[in-house]
């Protein structure tokens, strides 16, 4: 019994030492990375002024510092793909309101702070940057965001911009339930097997 206890203790200590080492290595690497590309769907404005529902992949493309905001909030809107040094107009939709203009840097990228109108209704809205691409063709990049009543923006982390790639998934509660059920059933099975084995040994 004493030998078993000692072996068990050694095993636990060894296992958790290995676990701590592995986690430590990963934690060392983790904060340095964070470099996964930020990908979104960008859309074009057609010559007739309409925007097609379909869009193209653009990584390290337009981004918003917050995707769930309150009316009157100031957020940072960044993007690229424009002609270097060209003027870019920032507009908020659904009801178009020009928020201002900025100038693309030499690489065609921009980053601008915009203050949202205080009369935006709660719900989905879109922020657009319009200008020209390096060939002089019209280019619009846009991102969707959600306006909530003041005081509700702390939920921002739970909201995905609809301008991002499709977000798929399942019901968390159901999965937790399945997991707990698996623990109970598995635990019972193991316990039963151990009792049966103990019974056979005793016999």
């Amino acid at each position: 019994m004493g030998r078993t206890t000692s072996t068990a203790r050694r095993s636990i200590v060894g296992a958790f030492a290995a676990l701590a080492t592995a986690l430590g290595l990963l934690l060392f690497a983790a904060p340095v990375a964070g470099a996964a590309p930020d990908c979104n769907i960008s859309r074009f404005t057609n010559p007739d002024g309409s925007t097609d529902l379909t869009g193209y992949l653009q990584c390290s493309g337009p981004s918003l510092s917050q995707t769930t905001v309150a009316p009157g909030d100031t957020i940072t809107f960044s993007g690229g793909g424009f002609k270097g040094g060209s003027e870019i107009t920032i507009t908020v939709y659904s009801t178009p309101q020009v928020l201002g203009t900025t100038v693309a840097d030499a690489s065609g990228n921009f980053s601008v702070q915009v203050t949202l109108p205080s009369n935006l209704d709660p719900g989905a809205h879109r922020l657009e940057a319009s200008g020209v691409d390096p060939s002089g063709s019209p280019l619009t990049v846009s991102l969707d965001f959600t306006v909530v009543s003041a005081g509700q923006t702390s939920e921002a982390g739970a909201v995905t911009p609809s301008g991002s790639l499709p977000y798929t998934g399942s019901d968390v509660g159901r999965i937790v339930g399945v997991g707990l059920a698996a623990v109970v059933v598995g635990g019972a099975a193991v316990w039963g097997a151990r009792r049966a084995k103990a019974g056979r040994t005793a016999a």
Partner: peptide
Amino acid sequence: GIGAALPLAAAIVLAV
């Protein structure tokens, strides 16, 4: 026994 079943639960949670 429950501890032994936890990895099974983890695998199922990841698979669902």
